[in-house]
Design a binder for these strands. Sequence first.
RNA 1: GCGCCCUUAGCUCAGUUGGAUAGAGCACGGGAUUUCUAAUCCUGAGGCCGCAGGUUCGAAUCCUGCAGGGCGCGCCA
Length: 600
Amino acid sequence: MPFPFSLSPLCANGACEMTDMQTLYTAFGGTIETALKALVTDGVLPEDASFKNVTLEPPRDPSHGDLATNAAMVLAKPAKTNPRALAEALVTKLEAAPGIASAAIAGPGFINLTLDPQVWLDELAAITALADDYGRSTMGKGTRVNVEYVSANPTGPMHMGHCRGAVVGDALSSLLELAGHKVTREYYINDAGGQVDTLARSAHLRYREALGEDIGEIPEGYYPGDYLKPIGEYLAQELGDKHKDTPEAEWLPYFRAEAVEKMMDLIKADLALLGIHHDVFASEAALHAAGKPDEAEKWLREQDLVYDGVLEAPKGKAPPEDWEPVELPLFRSTKFGDDQDRPIKKSDGKWTYFGADLAYHMQKAESADELIDIWGADHAGTVKRIKAAVAALSEGKGKPTPFDVKLVQMVQLMRGGEPVKMSKRSGNFITIADMIEEVGRDVVRFTMLTRKPEAQMEFDFAKVVEASKDNPVWYVQYAHARIQSTLRKALEDEGFSPSSDAIADLGDEEHALIKRAAQFPREVEAAAKAREPHRIAFYLYDLATDLNAFYSLGNTDTQKRFIVKQDARLSQSRLFLAAAIGQVLRNGLRVLGVEAVDRM
RNA sequence: GCGCCCUUAGCUCAGUUGGAUAGAGCACGGGAUUUCUAAUCCUGAGGCCGCAGGUUCGAAUCCUGCAGGGCGCGCCA
């Protein structure tokens, strides 16, 4: 964790009542900062020394103690001394600090800190006291983050391509909330382009079909899916044959609105199956109606960031047959690192997708301090232009809005190692609803988060339901169920319940487990900072591993079980530990939107 | 031709934003159970972190070049 160890404003003012909101790392970061400042006073470090690159992290090797800092290595140069000499001066200060049992110099100049056991016992008690709030952080300082995800076109039900982005966006939103941000979960409905006109025409076709007409094969240029049949029937019921033979202009807007609404109902139902609920559904059509794109264009023209110009034909590959140079209003995205300026309007005068999207991002920035978009990797080519647009628009407002586009790669569906063949024509097409019905919501969600989003992944229907350590979802839930089962049994058979009265008696093996659990708040902050919810999934797997390892000690030595019949004191302390581990597992799973089951 | 993403054990993947001897799972070898859920645990072997330079106390991580794989490349969305 880099300096400065920014505590919550309350703590910074010295009136720090909220020690519970501090992580172990911010607390001991403060200890190190104090020690370094003392060295400045002593003249060992120069007045202007920057602590920016000083880190405090858990060492990989447990024999290196509980915490390690690189302070001496980073500051040796400005102090005009060698790392070891500086480390010795720092160690003297640190050993006198509260909570630190010992400090040792190691390797090229690391300082390894071993903490008083009491620190871990306090942390254990804190988990229980904070319960669902353990891991919650004030890091985000309440800044407003708008996360836009899914935003599938309202032309049909959700397909697999949307699933991963949906889960990642939702988990990221929860993660940011836990890390102290105010999050808006937003969905952008593309209800204004040519696609929804096609949808309206397809609905009209089904409407005629519902009125008894033989429409034969669905012609090219229409959406063929059966999911449009109910809409045709609904419209036939509502309208009778009123628009059976009238000109398109008379029925299209109505059919479009109705069809989009029904499509959104389908999509929302799919999202609900995944446990996903957005706060805002933003309509592109409404954006146009409000004149937002015109507003953006006007402003950008004033800044000379939009001009009328002609694009060159693409180099390197043969230009399209019907290539014709046309003058269009272009956004100067090259000024922000894009390869080409981009049209915001089409030659027919209508807005391009980009033109509207640009205005949409401007609108989002009005009520958020920061924007995040989750996109499919097939849109990678358009990242630069939208980043350019946000940079242009938010700089103009005086306050640049941080903006991040997360690209989520495709998921390859497999079954027992073989790729699942999907063909829309044959109807052999797996929807999100099918997938959830087969393996369950928890499996879908967790599995989508067991790979970093920008890497392609496989989803094997056979593997994800396996009951083994090879299957992270199962393994983490198993650890939680095991804990719950133990707590139940302790109460039923022996009348033992968790108690912190004698946790000071717990030994090294228990402490190791507490140390892992104590990493959770740090993992939350690190994952939130990196915008990487998958880190929580990996952490939970590690925590489950430690729990199972500890649990297994009891197989060969009954004195090491959670429940030791002859020793109520010890049992209740261990049960207190078990309950705390269960709490951390639940808190982590909650971020991922996965249920922590009590039995399996 | 250009842009973006990826390349780590035989396979599938992590890697704490630049830290110490690069870690898990599967598969392979050896072990543990009259179990509080063995659907588990312990242990062994397995590596040119794609290749070559650079930056510095220190690089899988940052920069440059090259190779291989994926995605995209006029007004679609």
